[in-house]
Computed example of a mutant assay.
Amino acid sequence: MMTSSADALLAGNRLTLTDYRAKHFLWSVTNGVATITLNRPERKNPLTFESYAELRDLFRDLVYATDVKAVVIHGAGDNFCSGGDVHEIIAPLIDLPMPELLLFTRMTGDLVKAMRHCPQPVIAAVDGVCAGAGAILAMASDMRLGTARSKLAFLFARVGLAGCDMGACSILPRIIGQGRAAELLFTGRAATGDEGFAWGFYNRLCAPETLLDDAATLASELVAGPTFAHGITKKMLHQEWSMSIDEAIESEAQAQAICMSTRDFERAYRAFAAKARPVFEGD
């Protein structure tokens, strides 16, 4: 039987986020699917210092959340996100000394790290403008649904910055290939929805009016699956980028052995034997 100290330790590393009250975007949780809505449609949903920090902290907390099994992120209105707010972020940055600029760029990079390290699959539902830091949010997600009118643009070169922002030079080539990534990062041009789909940035294109529902349906399908194992899959997809083939095979052997010790693995077998559909519970 678990000791009271062990109970306390586990309790201290569990969170429920259904009732979380976001300050700088909208947040809701329904049947294990969390929805983040960037909610400044009159400005095409730009990010601020505060929304960057709150998103970073929320994705960090998701590591311990017991009630969130998948995340959908989208923008209110007809656009995903126009990037960092020109007046609330870009203008103040001009006057900051380099050490403080480095604090900011590390903070924005920490948001991507938090998205990559939370165990929940993250699905970006991208309509309209998806630019700058907004393009990074979509890139850092595990899957992306777009529309024909999606406009993907890594605008950094157009404001005098390098394209190597928030992990773009590492992650983007792995999604769309080195040459295509180089083109977008050097030129800052917008890729159409059709281009993004053909290049593999979007998993599929949806009608604008069904985009959010399609993303929620995909998220619900993932929630109905073996969510503990999904977390392992996400971890290995990220972790194996820096491994040799031999290291990856050994790591996957260890990861799969862990998954074989779960109740979900046993449930799947018993359901198969009974010619029934397994009901996974994530343990």
Score class of each variant (00 low, 15 high):
P41N: 07
R263H: 04
E252L: 13
G225A: 12
G163A: 07
A157Y: 02
F201L: 10
P121Y: 04
E88C: 14
G196Q: 11
S251C: 06
C164T: 13
H87L: 10
W27I: 03
A182W: 06
V223H: 01
E247N: 12
K151F: 09
S242M: 12
L222G: 00
Y64W: 03
C130Q: 11
A70Y: 00
R60F: 01
W27V: 01
E252K: 06
F197R: 05
R189P: 04
G282V: 03
L211K: 06
D142T: 11
V33F: 15
G84P: 06
V29D: 04
A8C: 06
P226S: 10
I73H: 09
T187R: 01
W241H: 15
G167K: 04
L237D: 11
M143P: 01
E42P: 10
C81N: 09
M98F: 10
D95M: 11
R106K: 05
W241K: 07
F186K: 09
L172M: 07
G160P: 02
G167I: 08
T18C: 11
I123C: 02
A229P: 00
P226H: 01
L17Y: 13
A271Q: 05
K44I: 06
G12Y: 07
S150F: 05
M1H: 08
M139F: 14
V129E: 01
L93E: 09
V71W: 00
P173G: 13
M166P: 08
F49E: 03
T37V: 15
E195S: 06
S261W: 13
L152E: 04
E195N: 11
L47Q: 13
A168M: 09
M1T: 13
G163V: 05
E195P: 03
A273Y: 13
P173R: 04
W241Y: 11
M236C: 02
A140W: 01
L9S: 15
A229F: 02
Q178F: 10
S141F: 01
L212N: 12
M2N: 05
A182S: 11
G146N: 08
E250D: 15
G282H: 07
L10Q: 13
A131F: 13
S244Q: 04
R21C: 03
K69V: 11
D283L: 10
G128C: 05
A257V: 13
A273C: 12
D246Q: 04
